[in-house]
Simulated scan of single mutants.
Amino acid sequence: MSTRDRILDAAHQVMAERGLARATTKEIARAAGYSEATLYKHFRDKTDLFVAVLSERAPSALPALMAGLPQRAGSGDLAATLEEVASAAIAFYTEAFPMSASIFSEPDLLEAHRAALRERGAGPGAISHALAAYLEAERRAGRLAPGADPASLADLLLGACFQHAFLSHFPGPRDRAREPRRRLARDLVAALLAGAAPH
Rank of each mutant, 00 (worst) to 15 (best):
Q13G: 10
A196L: 06
R176S: 14
L156F: 08
P180K: 11
A145Q: 05
E56G: 06
L188C: 06
R22C: 06
P107D: 02
A132E: 06
T24P: 09
Y93S: 11
P180W: 00
F50S: 09
R118T: 09
L135F: 09
R140K: 14
G172N: 08
E84W: 04
T25N: 12
G123R: 14
Y93I: 05
G74F: 13
G19F: 07
R57C: 08
H129K: 14
A89F: 02
A88M: 01
E106R: 14
G195L: 13
T24Y: 09
E179Y: 06
L131N: 05
A197Q: 13
R118M: 05
A23Y: 11
D48K: 12
G74V: 12
H42M: 02
D5Y: 01
C161W: 04
D77S: 12
T38D: 04
A29V: 04
R182T: 14
D9W: 01
A86R: 02
A21S: 13
L158N: 05
T3V: 10
M15G: 09
V14C: 03
A137C: 10
G121F: 05
A37R: 13
A89Y: 00
Q13A: 14
H42R: 04
P171A: 15
A148C: 04
A191I: 14
Q13E: 14
S168K: 15
V51A: 07
E111L: 15
R182K: 11
A52M: 12
A194T: 06
G195F: 11
A58M: 07
S2I: 02
A165Q: 06
R182L: 14
G147I: 04
H199C: 07
Q13D: 15
R57D: 05
E106K: 13
A86T: 01
P171E: 14
E17C: 10
R176W: 09
H169P: 11
A115G: 03
S100L: 15
R6W: 01
L82P: 02
A145L: 02
A29C: 07
E27Q: 13
D155N: 14
S55F: 05
A29R: 08
G33T: 13
R72S: 03
V14A: 02
M1V: 15
A141M: 09
E138Y: 08
R44T: 00
G74M: 12
H12G: 11
R18I: 05
A177H: 09
Y34K: 10
P98R: 03
D9I: 01
R118E: 02
F166L: 15
G195N: 08
L62K: 10
L110V: 11
A116D: 06
T25M: 10
G123L: 13
D77K: 11
S128Y: 03
P98F: 04
P59G: 15
T47V: 10
G74S: 12
P150D: 07
R174K: 13
A11W: 02
E56P: 09
V85G: 03
D149Y: 02
E136F: 07
D77C: 10
G76T: 07
L69Q: 03
S2P: 14
A88W: 02
F162C: 12
P171M: 15
A141D: 00
F166D: 08
R72D: 01
A79W: 01
P198M: 13
A190G: 02
A29G: 10
A31Y: 12
A160P: 01
G76F: 11
L69P: 09
E119N: 06
P146F: 00
M1C: 07
A32D: 03
A88R: 01
R174A: 15
M1S: 13
M99H: 01
P146V: 07
R4H: 07
E83D: 06
M66R: 05
